[in-house]
Amino acid sequence: MKIAIQVMTPPYSYQDMDSAIKIAEAALNKGHEVAIFLFADAVNAANSRVKPIRVDRNIPKKLEELIKEKGLRVDICGLCMEYRGLAEEALIEGARPSGLPELAKLIAESDRFLSFSA
């Protein structure tokens, strides 16, 4: 089953990214194909330059692990990146700058779509 999850709020300020990662990991472990679409301030979840304090979780690193080890797909709204000054070279490995056409494709082609409201 193809499952897509949209996140809109900034990581660390809110819990959406953490929840999305837990859902994604549980779904990947069951053999589902999972894509996370980062929209608005959520794009910072794919910023490799994020540096949380040592006792806190590293969200971009966790996303990168799921991409590399479990095949998670991470798409990022390109316009949202530009608005927030997030350069492509700062992205975690495997995350893809995309846009609303890709979100539309995810909605059209996924078997399930979830979103965390702003």
């Binding site: 809109m8 929209f39 608005a40 846009g99 609303l100 056409p101 539309a104 059209a108 702003a118």
Partner: peptide, 19 residues
């Protein structure tokens, strides 16, 4: 807040697909 604009922008972005 930006969500009215973003909701319309997202909606218009759907028209390239079967949505």
């Amino acid at each position: 807040s930006v969500w009215v604009n973003e909701a319309f922008r997202t909606a218009f972005g759907m028209y390239g697909e079967d949505v």
